[in-house]
Design a protein around this nucleic acid. Structure first.
Lengths: 361, 361
DNA sequence: AATTGTGATGATAGCGCTATCATCATGAAA
DNA sequence: TTTCATGATGATAGCGCTATCATCACAATT
């Protein structure tokens, strides 16, 4: 009777036996094939194929100290921004031997800290974490980590090691500048719920308006800083709903139009809000862009196809994920931990929704 | 000098030493605390906390045969449907000791087979795979797997073991019946690109129309069965774009309106197409629902907020993920492998976009 | 012929954990 | 008292792999 603790699958030893060599040689064929003679190598490969052998990752990890797992911690899987990033990361580790271990912090810094602790306990090959809002203790753990640590999505702070993203301040500033240049004067900001990144955009919006002498704090709407948006006990409508739903966009536009003096343009913190605002404008029979300019954020497919097409700010979400994975691979290859701030840039995508006829500006 | 191969972190042995007991007792505190005396247990927990000990997952896996990893294989991370499912899965394994290992097959059955082989090689605790379109060899491997295998998203076939989803045929049938009941007679189907699931919906659409005696095969648009949609070498516009973009919806509506006899309503294979169709209708100054009825699929946030709100078919995407994870946990607990077909049901969400004034019906 | 280097392969000893069996008090039942 | 069950803890032996060092044939160099 065979050892009951053993797996049933073939092991290095069984491949070795079949190929007529020692287990360690099989290991070499797997890990550094160039140092094994061609004939033996072929024999081993054939034997492995015949037995449909697959390495036991746990055993390899245990024996070799290094793992091939990249820990990724994102604040949400609901918000499409982060699934775009995630897709980039997965595409970035394709054709490498790296695995992704994903954690969802649900925008909870304590949960994030827990995940960081747990992931670091597994000695990951690299860590990719979103943003710069970690707790002090999370930050300390990441700084002490013996692997590349890559922060993503943000820029404006001193990174732990490598940070890949874009300036949210610039993003808010540039899209707002565009609205100012189009002649809009009462420009609102539909922030939704405010985190560090949104705050950067808000400050960019504010700066652009202050420079033009038309800043009015009443025109920012951030009162959705509301636990219901992320609280699992919230009513179904919001719980299953995207916290950035188009319905919120509609509601917020109504509120902004109702503030003293109203608004003649709105910068929406994401494209979904913007589409919601567009629908609300249609419902109110406001002409876009004549009566109301609408600008989105992220430049997703949707706003290219709307009627009228919406201006937006293109953010390199997929590219951030791809590059983050690439940096991880590269830093592992070169065993380097050089600090780096990688700005993947942004771009204002100008479309009809903000092309105000100059006559009326 | 310590063993250079060893990790630097604390091990079971160091915790044991600090707690003044043997390593195996520490292991017991971790795995079945109830069999250790309260005092010793407390001492061990305290020692572990002081050293901030974390188990070495690789060592545990190697020693215990069983892993705590659930392999999940999805065909896409681009399509929001699957990220909804993914979110459900992650929420479903929260507060369990299960990990998720995610693979993206990019709608490629060979890639899927590769992933299945690789994942099974790691003796996962369970497997969750999307759909029923596996290759024969994939199917064989999954059937032979020594772990619960849960298929999701579909229903209409004999499952490997447990399948969780809904009937795509019924879905297509019900939403089309609704359109028929509203008095629409030239009802198109905007399929986009056809896989097994879309085909089910198409057949449902067809059946409903045949029953009403108004089926016309010219009114289905499925010519986007186009490799560019999933080919990484496609032009940027499509590559980075969602293969179910609203722009496709706009294009397809134009095509459907141009077929002989035109259409007076359209069932769109997803909500994004439907919103695109709505925008196109707006651009063409077609009144919705009077001139054109529009129905979407999935009932996402977006269609609730559009102007007019779009009817859609609610699909339990998040719930499928949640339940799949739940089934995995449950089957592991009970060590059962009972066949099960779990229909999570669908619902027609009727909104303005298909409420045709009966006078004109 | 002796020495050295090189390239290919093998032997050995763990990596940190858990399955299994062994031990040893303790108290209840005979 | 003896026996036996029970509960708590320990000792031992791997899980399947790789790091490290050892070996050995063979060719090149002195």
């Amino acid at each position: 009777m065979p050892n009951p603790r053993s797996h049933d699958g073939p092991t290095l030893a069984s491949v070795a036996q079949r190929a007529g060599c020692s287990p360690i040689t099989v290991s070499r064929v797997l890990n550094s094939p160039e140092i094994v003679s061609p004939e033996l190598r072929e024999r081993v490969i054939a034997a492995a194929a015949e037995l449909s052998y697959h390495v036991n990752v746990a055993a390899r990890t245990l024996a070799s100290i290094r793992t091939n797992t990249v820990g990724v911690i994102l604040p949400s899987l609901t918000i499409h921004i982060f699934t775009d990033v995630l897709r980039g990361i997965y595409d970035g580790v394709r054709d490498t031997n790296l695995r992704v271990m994903l954690g969802n912090s649900h925008y909870d810094q304590n949960e994030e800290e827990r995940l960081i602790r747990e992931f670091l306990g597994q000695k990951p090959a690299a860590m990719i974490v979103s943003g710069i809002e970690q707790t002090a203790s999370s930050r300390r753990m990441l700084e002490a980590a013996k692997c590349p640590v890559i922060q993503i999505m943000d820029l404006d702070d001193d990174p732990i090691e490598c940070i890949i993203g874009f300036s949210h301040f610039d993003a808010g500033y540039q899209i707002t500048r565009h609205l100012v240049e189009q002649g809009y004067r009462r420009i609102g900001f539909m922030a939704g719920w405010v985190n560090k990144r949104s705050l950067g955009r808000l400050n960019g919006w504010r700066r652009a308006l202050e420079e033009a002498g038309i800043y009015d704090p009443a025109r920012v709407l951030a009162d959705m800083t509301d636990d219901r948006l992320i609280d699992p006990s919230a009513p179904d409508d919001l719980r299953y709903g995207d916290p950035s739903s188009a319905l919120h966009g509609r509601m917020m536009l109504r509120k902004l139009l109702a503030v003293d003096g109203g608004i003649d343009a709105v910068f929406c913190n994401n494209d979904i809000f913007a589409v919601g605002a567009l629908f609300e404008a249609q419902a109110l029979r406001l002409r876009v862009p004549e009566d109301l300019g609408i600008a989105g954020f992220n430049d997703t497919d949707l706003v290219r196809a709307s009627h009228p097409p919406l201006s937006s700010l293109r953010t390199p979400r997929y590219e951030i994920g791809l590059r983050a994975a690439g940096e991880a691979v590269c830093r592992l290859d070169q065993n380097s931990r050089t600090p780096a701030i990688i700005d993947l840039g942004i771009e204002v995508a100008v479309r009809t929704s903000t092309m105000r006829p100059q006559a009326s500006g």
